[in-house]
Amino acid sequence: MVATGFRRRKVVIPPGGRRCFDEDEWADALVCVESGVVELVCSTGEAPRYGRGALLWLTGLPVEVLCNPGRVDAVVHAVSRFRFEGGEPMFADTKAFSGFAVDDIPAAKRFYGETLGLVVSEEHGMLTLHLAGDRPTLVYPKPNHVPASFTILNFPVPDIERAVDELAAKGVEFQRYEGMDGFDERGVFRGGGPLIAWFTDPAGNVLSVLQED
């Protein structure tokens, strides 16, 4: 059975508390430490500790117990796109989802919701961008975030010049890359291929608008 949408759950471990690790509970989940410190006691004898902002993928790790060695509650959130009840996952039939990091969730929410006009929801300190075509995209916080060197989202538009002008009026600045000839005065690249213009979100992630065929 495949569940649709994102499945989110919150786990709170009190100071000095322990929680036995159930692999099924954490299967296929992106885990974020919201506050406090979590210690993963492994069967190998290792016990790494992770603090606020850490992102973890626990599936397949030899974890036996989750502990809180700190003095405040350790709050952990887990997000998964689907969960299989028995049997092997058939990836050809699953609705995979993508995600990316930012260093400021409130700023990202304003940018994607107000500047770009996307439908944005927030839960457990993370955002979901509800893109057209039933393609939800997860946006999660990462304090030491480093922007990717590639374009993470492309937005096809029927009129790229109008889209660029409207975004520019909202304060969006378009990128012009060294070594690439063909940018016009708006920042639209006309050097070959579909017309495209690149810009960044507040975290420095690269986005684009491009002319539909």
Results as ranks from 00 to 15, higher is better:
Val102Ser: 10
Val209Lys: 13
Leu55Gly: 11
Val31Trp: 07
Val33Ser: 09
Glu23Met: 10
Asp73Ala: 06
Gln175Ser: 10
Phe183Leu: 02
Arg7Tyr: 08
Gly45Thr: 01
Pro14Leu: 08
Pro69Asp: 04
Glu185Lys: 06
Ala92Val: 10
Pro136Gln: 03
Phe150Glu: 13
Gly179Asn: 02
Pro14Lys: 04
Val157Phe: 08
Glu212Cys: 01
Pro156Tyr: 02
Lys170Ala: 08
Gly204Tyr: 13
Pro136Val: 03
Ile105Val: 15
Thr94Lys: 14
Val102Ile: 11
Leu153Val: 12
Arg83Asn: 04
Lys95Phe: 06
His145Ser: 06
Asp24Ser: 12
Ser35Ala: 02
Glu114Ile: 00
Val12Ser: 05
Gly125Ala: 08
Ala108Arg: 06
Pro62Val: 05
Gly204Leu: 10
Ala169Tyr: 10
Gly113Thr: 03
Glu34Asn: 07
Phe189Thr: 01
Leu61Lys: 15
Leu58Gly: 12
Val172Met: 06
Arg49Val: 04
Phe82His: 09
Val75Asn: 05
Trp57His: 15
Ser43Ile: 02
Ala197Asn: 04
Thr44Arg: 04
Val41His: 07
Asp73Leu: 01
Glu185Thr: 13
Arg7Leu: 12
Glu212Asp: 02
Val119Pro: 00
Val2Asn: 08
Ala96Glu: 10
Val37Ser: 07
Leu40Ala: 12
Phe6Pro: 00
Asp24Leu: 05
Leu40Gln: 12
Leu56Val: 06
Gly17Ile: 00
Val75Phe: 15
Ile152Thr: 09
Arg18Ser: 11
Gly86Asn: 12
Ala163Lys: 12
Phe183Arg: 04
Phe183Asp: 07
Pro147Ile: 14
His124Pro: 08
Arg176Lys: 15
Ala29Met: 03
Pro48Arg: 09
Phe189Ile: 04
